[in-house]
């Protein structure tokens, strides 16, 4: 009889242990799923939800804040997604915050990302409709990569040309021996040269990536679904384009300037530095220079980010080795 009592104690211990683990697991799982605790609803509309379903995660600047509650078709081109958001986030999410869709990790659970608009719009209320941003799909990414690849080559050539022009234009250098403008110009010509070199490298890297992709090599295909990388790549490409645009502008303006200088000198309209003090022209020039600097900086940053992404780290290392 005493033995039976001890057995019952052991059995009770056994069952309680199981129960406790179960409750603990349910709590741990439930912590992220909004099943417990209060929340409110926000809505967003998409043309295509790419397989988003109820239960998918919603993040605010990368923090888990809720889940997708329901996906409803409004019309043939419009799908409304209701999100359950933790009430604690009510003081952070604004009406103009942007919702984008991306993929979570390698295996590709769809997630919604709320990005702060930072424009001081009022806080979002229960049931409000947020703004969307189109997501980047792998196919689009590859297409853009291919196109920008060509653009980058053009841009880097033009950048080279500009630098050459600036370096070789002795008349210009003489004119610019004083004041801040020449310093700026010198600095930016250095930046431009660096950017050009980077762009060159980038073009090569992207070429290899795309070739590898075409050949179906490695796991790059799946890697490109990783949103962080896609984002970095896209940003990098965009900054290159920006640099290109700004450089174009600069080249045009420098051209204008030299033309103007020539005609002024020919028509005997006073010394060159007087012309250079013409405020509008100087401001324009200065603006374009700082734009170029900003652009190259952003581009470099994006390239660095890309290189540090853990999935591509090995790839870039191999690339470096090959270069050596």
């Amino acid at each position: 009889m005493a033995k039976r009592a001890i057995n019952n104690v052991k059995l009770g211990f056994f069952v309680l242990a199981g129960l406790l683990i179960m409750i603990f697991s349910l709590y741990m799982i439930g912590k992220d799923t909004n099943m417990f605790g209060s929340n409110y609803t926000l809505k967003v509309r998409f043309e295509n939800v790419h397989g988003l379903t109820s239960g998918n995660n919603v993040r605010y600047s990368g923090i888990q804040v809720g889940t997708v509650k329901r996906v409803k078709i409004l019309s043939d081109t419009l799908i409304e997604v209701s999100m359950l958001i933790d009430t604690k986030m009510k003081q952070y999410i604004h009406k103009n915050d942007i919702v984008s869709m991306s993929t979570d990790g390698l295996m590709g659970n769809r997630i919604l990302n709320i990005t702060p608009a930072k424009d001081g719009s009022p806080l979002a209320e229960n049931g409000d409709l947020l703004i969307t941003k189109k997501s980047v799909s792998t196919d689009e990414m590859l297409e853009t990569l291919d196109k920008t690849n060509k653009n980058i080559r053009d841009i880097s050539q033009e950048l080279k040309l500009t630098v050459l022009k600036i370096n070789n234009s002795s008349a210009l250098w003489k004119l610019l021996t004083e004041e801040t403008l020449p310093d700026n110009l010198r600095a930016s010509s250095f930046s431009i040269r660096k950017a050009a070199a980077n762009a060159d490298g980038m073009v090569q890297d992207l070429h290899t990536i795309i070739n590898d992709l075409r050949a179906g090599k490695g796991s790059l295909g799946s890697i490109l679904t990783d949103t962080a990388i896609a984002y970095n790549l896209n940003e990098a490409v965009l900054s290159i384009q920006q640099v290109g645009n700004h450089a174009d502008e600069l080249v045009r303006e420098l051209d204008d300037l030299t033309k103007g200088l020539k005609s002024d000198v020919n028509s005997g309209k006073g010394p060159a530095h007087a012309i250079l003090k013409d405020s509008t022209l100087v401001i324009k020039l200065n603006n374009s220079l700082s734009n170029i600097e900003k652009g190259t900086e952003a581009f470099n940053q994006n390239m660095e980010a890309l290189k540090h992404n853990f999935l591509l780290r090995g790839y870039f290392k191999r690339l470096e080795k090959r270069k050596k």
């Binding site: 697991s25 349910l26 741990m28 799982i29 439930g30 912590k31 992220d32 799923t33 099943m35 239960g55």
Partner: peptide, 8 residues
């Protein structure tokens, strides 16, 4: 636990 949901 992050990877798990009630559906699992």
């Amino acid at each position: 636990f992050d990877a798990l949901s009630f559906d699992d």
